[in-house]
Design a binder for these strands. Structure first.
Length: 189
DNA sequence: TATGAGATCAACT
DNA sequence: GTTGATCTCATAC
């Protein structure tokens, strides 16, 4: 049986429920992508979240309906892809940090200019470059093209740890990954 | 293997 | 003017 599409109701739950449930799900963007192996949860009460200090032009999508993509520029260079969660207006999101490349490898290699599958999508910036995601996709619905999200068919073993690359609330264990995957941006310990 | 600089921009102080 | 949900490349060990 084919995997079910992830619908709006899937995302209309707490980020802490959605984030681990995304591990093992399939993310395709314009047909390219693979299995999600690493995500981080950002709750609006969390000092590390962009929405913590209220709505701005950049984070406006986070304050909208769940099931939409929030894309922002990181360090002036990279793009990062988030899925908006929880009931509308709660301004929480899941950062997609790494996927295991499965589909559209040729296109992803070309965009990333590397042949090493391990370096294609292991990190939020790399992932967006490989899939061709940028700010023009900010605010798009996740249940319509070019996005395609498929539920996992088996229950994966999920690793939990501290989030990466942040200074505020760094101790919160809100990073989730597929245990033992080679495609994590960093191993869990 | 590990550390450090540079790239480059929007939000915030 | 400083900082950040990052990555790459160079240099050092």
């Amino acid at each position: 049986m084919l995997s079910a599409k992830l619908n709006r109701a899937f995302f209309a739950r707490s980020v802490h429920a959605v984030a681990p449930d995304l591990i093992g799900a399939t993310l395709l963007f314009d047909g390219a992508g693979g299995r999600i192996v690493e995500v981080e949860a950002y709750h609006h009460t969390d000092p590390a979240a962009h929405s913590f200090r209220g709505r701005t032009e950049r984070n406006a999508v986070m304050f909208g309906a769940p099931g939409y993509a929030y894309v922002y520029r990181s360090y002036g260079i990279h793009w990062c892809l988030n899925f908006v969660c929880e009931p509308e207006g709660s301004a929480s999101a899941v950062l997609i940090r790494a996927i295991e490349p499965i589909a559209g490898l040729g296109r992803m290699r070309r965009r990333r200019a590397t042949a090493d599958a391990r370096l294609l999508c292991s990190g939020p910036g790399r992932l967006c470059q490989a899939l061709g995601v940028s700010v023009i996709h900010n605010g798009l619905a996740l249940d319509r093209k070019p996005f395609e999200l498929l539920a996992r068919s088996e229950e994966p073993q999920i690793a939990v740890g501290m989030r990466i690359g942040i200074t505020k609330a760094a101790e919160l264990p809100w990073r989730y990954g597929l245990a033992g995957s080679r495609f994590l941006s960093k191993p869990f310990r």
